[in-house]
Design a protein around this nucleic acid. Sequence first.
DNA 1: CTCCATACTGACAACGTTGTCGACAACGTG
DNA 2: CACGTTGTCGACAACGTTGTCAGTATGGAG
Lengths: 348, 348
Amino acid sequence: MAAVPNPPESPRRAPTIKDVAERAGLGFKTVSRVLNDEPNVRPETRDRVLAAVAELGYRRNSIASSIRRSDQRTSSIGLIVEDLANPFASSLTRVVQDYARERGHLVLVGSSDGDPGQEAELVGEFGTRRVDGMILVPNGPDQSYLEEERRRGTAVVFVDRPGRGIEADTVVSENAAGVAEAVRHLALAGHTRIAYLGDFESIYTSAERLQGFRDAMAAFGGADPRHIRTGLHDPEQAHRAAAELFALDPAPTALIAGNNLITVGAVHALQDLGIRDRTAFVAFDDLELADLLRPALTVVAQDTAALGEAAARHLFERLADPAAPYRRTRVPVRFEVRSSGAIPAPGH
Amino acid sequence: MAAVPNPPESPRRAPTIKDVAERAGLGFKTVSRVLNDEPNVRPETRDRVLAAVAELGYRRNSIASSIRRSDQRTSSIGLIVEDLANPFASSLTRVVQDYARERGHLVLVGSSDGDPGQEAELVGEFGTRRVDGMILVPNGPDQSYLEEERRRGTAVVFVDRPGRGIEADTVVSENAAGVAEAVRHLALAGHTRIAYLGDFESIYTSAERLQGFRDAMAAFGGADPRHIRTGLHDPEQAHRAAAELFALDPAPTALIAGNNLITVGAVHALQDLGIRDRTAFVAFDDLELADLLRPALTVVAQDTAALGEAAARHLFERLADPAAPYRRTRVPVRFEVRSSGAIPAPGH
DNA sequence: CTCCATACTGACAACGTTGTCGACAACGTG
DNA sequence: CACGTTGTCGACAACGTTGTCAGTATGGAG
């Protein structure tokens, strides 16, 4: 830590349109007209204004602007995810921000940590800032409080999971189909004793993925109930659950992990047990180095870019037409075949 | 994609303090006093106001509030990173957002994509919204345009790299020391032909890391110039450069990758060449599955949490005391020993 | 030349809030 | 009782902008 002795220059008041008007020798309303590209300004007058703007380094105060504007729009939107540091969330953030910026909007972000209280608090903060709309990954049993926001004219879009107790534009992944494809892939390699590790069933995506697993397994005689473990919310729990699964008799010969945190725990468990090379494995959610693991991880990859873009698109379309019927979009997943899913069942 | 026929309820004007005042039968200034916890309000009056607030579902308009406030503060800050989807950036975002929120501030985010033009554009947008301060990972040869922002009273903090052409609070990692430690670690396993893959030398972190490499290698007779490759900006370029390195005679026996994108390309190259198991490797930047690779990746891990927190702390301290001397904080890296760095040199 | 339409410009209100100030009541002190 | 002090409250200006409207110059038609 080093200290540099320079104190900053004295801060001065930012110039306003009135300063610009005075400098240009015009009424301040004329300046406003130029800045908003309104018609009926002489080109010469316009140039004088722009020159004064440049000389003073004037920059519009869009805070003041949006309080006066008739539509009360702030050209900003809010995005609430569970954890900004999570790759799924950050990829979403990136896409949403790009989409918004192309349309002149900025994005406020926040992590809910899966806590409905924090979610509601963030929604409140965003509302206070009068965002034009919000995109959220909803948490908890009830998002009906968002009706209040909508009545104020704020657009609301859910992504990854539908909100509860409220109808709204929603974008989700094809969770069940993705897991079903994983099951069929494993079955092709001769597996019938396929185990599944999932998060809390109360989470929409977890429930959908589990349902996809059960349904697909039905075609192969159904899943062994002991081979299904849910309620795993971090890598450590997944690690333990996986270890327990392989202590069973008969033990599963293949494993599906319901999300990326579970994948991390499960692969660690297989590693500890020394059965990484002979246990077939498919993970939900892609991971940065998945193709460099040995065996390379076969995954059900979510199309986070499409998810984020669809959510942003829904938001802006909602802003354009508040009366349109709500839409629910399902985004296909991509089944990424590498090698871990092709490990054959013993004797196959 | 499914459509639900519900049209939304008619949007109505959000209630203002005047609506609250009328409902409570009080002057609107009294309502303002209650909302801002100003003294000299009778408890009974206060209750009446709060009741009216609750009945109307009033929520302060902090947009209007901040235009009138004497300090002109908006309780929002801006964060500009290269790519919001990058794990380094998203981890930073998470920490900065948490820190800001604890202090009642919201965070606007943006990706510069390493382009000075986009960076300046985002700075402009943030300025228009009158953010209280900005944290940025600077790009390009000159950030002196930020002086203008500061003159307006906006605090500026650089993170990951110092800004150029301007003095400001800055937080960076101990890049050189981290790479030097990697070199010593490899040397301990008997390596002297250690190669280095880096990004553009014009990027501050790349230059620092390369310098750390050269300096540390000097203790072991210096690096072979042919074993240093820079200007690698994506995994593909790194892949090719690594392949070329190992076609040399004498080929290097160990490799250091200067950032996470280079790591991905380099490991792929080692994989293709079939020399992953016998080439010592240390990566700068940790990766999610690094410990599950075989061999597990030894890395120089940046403390993104400390980096982000220090940046946020600097920003808020700057807001509290604009005249304090600028500070430059260096955050230590963590050398994470796994196995890839311990692969011995041939005949050692 | 007169008249009217149109282009251009500025004075002023308004947005929802906070800051300033003064009015008024209650109270204590001499 | 007179007076100052303190607590409580509201009227009004102000923030920087956009919306409304009216005023003035200009040009073309008659």
